[in-house]
Design a binder for these strands. Structure first.
Lengths: 210, 210
DNA sequence: CGTAAGTTTGACTTACATCAAGTTTTGTGG
DNA sequence: CCACAAAACTTGATGTAAGTCAAACTTACG
């Protein structure tokens, strides 16, 4: 349906775990398209609290918010070895002016990213801890599935603290919630690997406020 | 810097308080550009909790998330008499294909909306109730100022419950927090009208977690 | 293979929600 | 334009989900 964004003449990059693609506050560095590996997008609130806005997977376009602002307001950081394409700011701006198909596809990509951000807002604004964790697991496994992997198992690439930061709860709450889902046979957790035993049960968690 | 989005041949609409522009779940109805009055964008979580994603002011472009999804996932509802321009889905899609300046401007508009959504995520994910309310007031007055109005006073167009819904706190907490800011001489509240007496103090609230 | 980082689990605390009751504001129909 | 019912707001008392602190256990590297 929506064409996948492709950037002619993008530079190919490889980065190691912990490397930063762009630092929050930096002037628009252009767009990155993640090819392999995963990234986190981290913002810092005025009081210094860190928040992980998103975990990024292959195919994701990064840096979209800086196009209009002219400044990145989150740090992009590799969580493992990654490869990506990079299109400089000047290149993106030029394509946007000269290549109308690119502009249209970029608009679709942005609309998609915006829609996802809205769904995360809804999660942060209305859900209990258990609902947040269930929603997170379902999202994660769905994105994983969309990349061609199993629909009932994921290897978490992030720590409990990182999940907590993303969901607006503490690492301990994430741990306890996963443990509870395990006991209830909704999932099977062993460290970082999770099997969704009962997808319907997780969906049911979303339907109730306790 | 970023050109304001303009849509050739958009239809002009007038709606009364409480009228719905688009219902959540409806197929992409095109874009709306708000001319006067204000709107709320409301999403509903799986368990039925309502969340106000955004309060929209003149100049805002509405319906952006549905461009890629093909479906609106929030309801747009007039909070008072409004006027807006409406460009149908077909019209938007055609412009996107044929008018490259339109596509580029739309991309900028989308990037801006995405950036704002990210900042709201940060607020919902990391801030205390007092920080959320302070941040909300500052945002509101800034947007108000950008429209050419006073930089130190706003007439709230929404109820305490609506503010609470937007910020992920209860109406009572909003009320108490405003009362506290009033006592502390950061603001002067009388019902729906708020004067920011000490902008610096509100900014300072953002810097601490208590 | 040892050390640091991550995880789990329990005990205790707290910020905010909920409930409740009284007061003020708003908007609508006569 | 006014009256008055409904909605919104305020404030206090009480409950609770999730945070914080702490200590023991596990995993993963360098």
């Amino acid at each position: 349906m929506t064409a996948r964004l492709a950037v002619p003449d993008a530079r190919h990059l490889r980065l190691a775990r912990g490397d930063v693609l762009v630092r929050s506050g930096a002037p628009f560095a252009g767009l990155y398209i993640l090819r392999s590996g995963s990234c986190k997008q981290v913002a810092v609130s005025p009081d210094g609290e860190e928040h992980i806005l998103a975990f990024c997977h292959p195919g994701d376009v990064l840096g979209l918010e800086a196009l209009a602002a002219g400044t990145h307001d989150a740090t992009l950081c590799a969580m493992e070895t990654i490869t990506c394409w990079h299109a400089s700011a000047a290149h993106v701006e030029r394509l946007l002016r000269e290549d109308s198909a690119f502009a249209a596809t970029l608009a679709h990509t942005l609309s998609q990213a915006f829609g996802r951000a809205m769904r995360r807002e809804l999660r942060l604004g209305t859900m209990t801890a258990a609902q947040r964790v269930a929603s997170f697991l379902l999202d994660l496994v769905d994105r994983h599935h969309a990349l061609g992997f199993a629909r009932d198992a994921v290897e978490l690439r992030m720590t409990r603290a990182e999940i907590g930061s993303h969901l607006g709860v503490s690492a301990e709450t994430v741990s306890r919630t996963l443990a509870r889902f395990h006991v209830q046979r909704h999932i099977a957790v062993t460290g970082r690997s999770v099997r969704l035993c009962d997808r319907a049960a997780l969906l049911r968690v979303l339907l109730h406020r306790d």
